[in-house]
């Protein structure tokens, strides 16, 4: 175990998988000589060279497609989007091609590819650079969707994603790159996709959070415990698809209350999906309507105060927990 930032944990995962499997390569804008726009690929080009770590032109659709083709032919590409906002230019390759290839080839061609990069808000980068896209990608059969919240999870999940035989949408968060945590250094440490993690035990209310909202939910849980004596359980699904609904349902059966916190928009979102599934599987256990906290239903504004108002925060979570606990 060593204490690492999430950035370095991701870097370690990439490095170990490059060492482990000759078929793995990394491709994207500024990933090689610049060490990555957010330094996740730092040092990898120097160690592995031009063949394995490849700078691309600003051609998202084109290099995503090269990844899909290379994966179809047996390689295991890791495609970095400088941010997930730019993946929208490549959505045709991800959704129309990567996601469907296994099915429409009658099971002949699987696409072992990872698309990764930062997702969600950053620091005042405004409407076109602040989008959280998990709901969009999770909507399409054929894609796995992963969202780590701690350095150890990031490492273990990224390694599993690279070893997975199917396309994985791996959503990081710029604001979490600098967060620190203990990370196992065993090169065979992996975390299976589709397994949630209870980040905090509690008995009165369940909070489901993912990625950036996990540390915020944990802070809120501390505050609620101290100020209101309410004990919150924080569940991090870690993988959005496949979704470990059982862990969430089991928690709700214990607490009878559920608050879901997310950075994406609410309409047709992941929280909506979790709400529906909990209603189907644990309706009788609920003592209050499920509460969702999402980003405002508007593009992200630039101004500091408006951006803060648009995003989930501790105060909003505390208020939601109070509401479902009738406090």
């Amino acid at each position: 175990m060593a204490e690492l930032t999430m950035r370095d944990a991701l870097n370690q995962a990439l490095r170990e998988e490059l060492l482990r499997d000759e078929r793995v390569f990394i491709m994207g804008e500024e990933v090689a000589q610049y060490d990555g726009a957010y330094k996740v690929t730092r040092g990898l080009w120097r160690e592995f060279g031009d063949k394995r770590v490849i700078d691309t032109p600003i051609s998202e659709l084109g290099f995503a497609a090269i990844g899909v083709g290379a994966a179809m032919a047996g390689l295991r590409p890791v495609i970095e989007f400088m941010t997930w906002n730019f993946s929208i230019l490549a959505a045709d390759q991800i959704i129309n091609h990567a996601a469907k290839m296994l099915y429409m080839s009658g099971g002949q061609f699987n696409i072992p590819i990872v698309f990764r990069g930062p997702n969600g808000s950053a620091y005042q980068v405004s409407s076109q650079h602040s989008q959280a896209l998990e709901a969009m990608y999770a909507n399409f059969p054929g894609l796995k969707v992963v969202m780590p919240s701690t350095p150890a999870d990031a490492k273990g999940l990224l390694k599993s994603a690279i070893r997975d035989d199917n396309p994985v949408i791996f959503l990081e968060q710029e604001k979490l790159y600098g967060t620190k945590g203990e990370v196992p250094d065993d090169p065979d440490f992996t975390i299976p996709l589709g397994v949630a993690d209870v980040k905090r035990q509690g008995k009165d209310c369940t909070i489901v959070a993912r990625s950036l909202t996990v540390p915020i939910a944990l802070q809120a849980a501390e505050k609620i415990e101290k100020e209101y004596g309410v004990s919150c359980e924080v569940v991090d699904p870690r993988t959005i698809k496949p979704l470990d609904i059982d862990t969430i349902v089991n928690s709700v059966k214990k607490t009878n209350r559920l608050v879901i916190v997310e950075e994406s928009h609410q309409f047709c979102g992941v929280a909506a999906e979790i709400t529906a599934q909990v209603n189907e599987k644990a309706f009788d256990y609920l003592d209050a309507p499920i509460k969702r906290i999402s980003s405002a239903e508007a593009p992200m504004p630039y101004a500091r105060n408006l951006e803060a108002a648009a995003l989930p925060d501790v105060a909003k979570i505390v208020a939601a927990v109070k509401e479902v606990c009738y406090l």
Binding site: F86, Q124, S126, S127, Q128, H129, P301, Y302
Partner: peptide, 24 residues
């Protein structure tokens, strides 16, 4: 109105159609 910031300046009055952040 503070909504766009550095990358998204617009002005209909001046025939200035923006300030766009997605390359191309």
């Amino acid at each position: 109105k503070g909504k766009g910031g550095s990358m998204h300046l617009f002005s209909k009055e001046h025939g200035f159609f923006g300030g766009h952040g997605i390359v191309g």
